[in-house]
């Protein structure tokens, strides 16, 4: 059984390494991820939101709805832990 697991891991790893041949180099400033939408955030952050930390302005302002869902996720996780484990008295 462990042999099959090892084979699956090696095949998946080989496929992933093959896929890196098409990736841009490490630190390439002209890669698609660095040129599509992020220059807009860097240029407009200070004049639109008055926040020098771009991570904060994107997290809470441009993508505030995303962070609302995130907060709900951790709230739900806390409530689930409480519901699963908490018992006031020994039953």
């Amino acid at each position: 059984m462990k042999v099959f697991a090892l084979m699956a891991v090696i095949i998946t790893g080989a496929a992933l390494i093959y896929s890196t041949f098409g990736m841009p180099d490490w630190g390439d400033a002209d890669s698609p991820a660095n040129t599509h939408v992020s220059p807009r955030y860097i240029e407009k952050s200070i004049e639109e939101t008055a926040t020098p930390n771009i991570v904060t302005s994107v997290l809470a302002d441009y993508r505030g709805y995303d962070t609302l869902g995130e907060t709900t996720v951790i709230f739900t996780a806390g409530i689930v832990c409480m519901l699963l484990l908490r018992n006031k008295k020994d039953d």
């Binding site: 639109e48 008055a50 904060t56 907060t71 996780a77 806390g78 409480m82």
Partner: peptide
């Protein structure tokens, strides 16, 4: 005002994260 709104929701997120960490 956008920066102020950002600060307000950061406080809310901080409260939730703190109490969820302690509770878990």
């Amino acid at each position: 005002a956008r920066a102020m709104g950002t600060l307000g929701i950061e406080i809310g997120v901080g409260l939730t994260v703190m109490s969820v960490m302690v509770s878990i």
